[in-house]
Amino acid sequence: MVKPENLGRIIDEHPFFQGIDATLRELLVGCAANERFDAGQFLFRQGQSAKKFFLIRAGTVAVEIDQPGRPPIIIETIAEGDIAGWAWMVEPYQSTFDARAMTLVRALSFDAQCLRRKMEADPALGFEVMRRFVPVMAHRLAAARLQMLDLYGPTKKPKPEKTAKPEKAEAKSKGRNRAADARLEKAESKKKKDG
């Protein structure tokens, strides 16, 4: 374990805590620890109780979802300067993703229980941590949405004449005439049988 004074320096240098008040910093240091993960090791796992969050100091972490029978889906990669894990702040304090070290990762971890207790006791600290966390979460959410947009354009051409109309036709057919057509066919086959 690294000594608290060293942790304090690391906290000071990390952009996430830039400009933090010295007293509050000391409170934080009390909950912090320095950690290291080899490539392949998990920082936390989906479904587990979120006991910590991490300030990534070096290396790359994959935030991913496991799927049976296929390789896990990487949702995003986070790296130096980023925060990993915010589930510790939101009830029921359960991790929603896996966080896997893609390379050697050095990170500062914060004990969630310790921090939550201190935050409740000291609203100034609570506010300060929240103030720094909310933008991170907001940014992460925005980035995730962007990622879903298929921003760089479709690979398949959007045939304007060809697809526009058939889509409409399909939709329409499903709604109205396809169903009507099916009914008719039924009626017809019945008629044949009857006749």
Binding site: K162, K165, P166, A169, S173, R178
Partner: peptide, 17 residues
């Protein structure tokens, strides 16, 4: 006969109208 008269695209996809 049917009760309606409808466009071709109401029944199958059409490439150009």
């Amino acid at each position: 006969t049917l009760t309606t008269s409808t466009a071709i695209s109401d029944h199958v996809p059409v490439d150009f109208e």
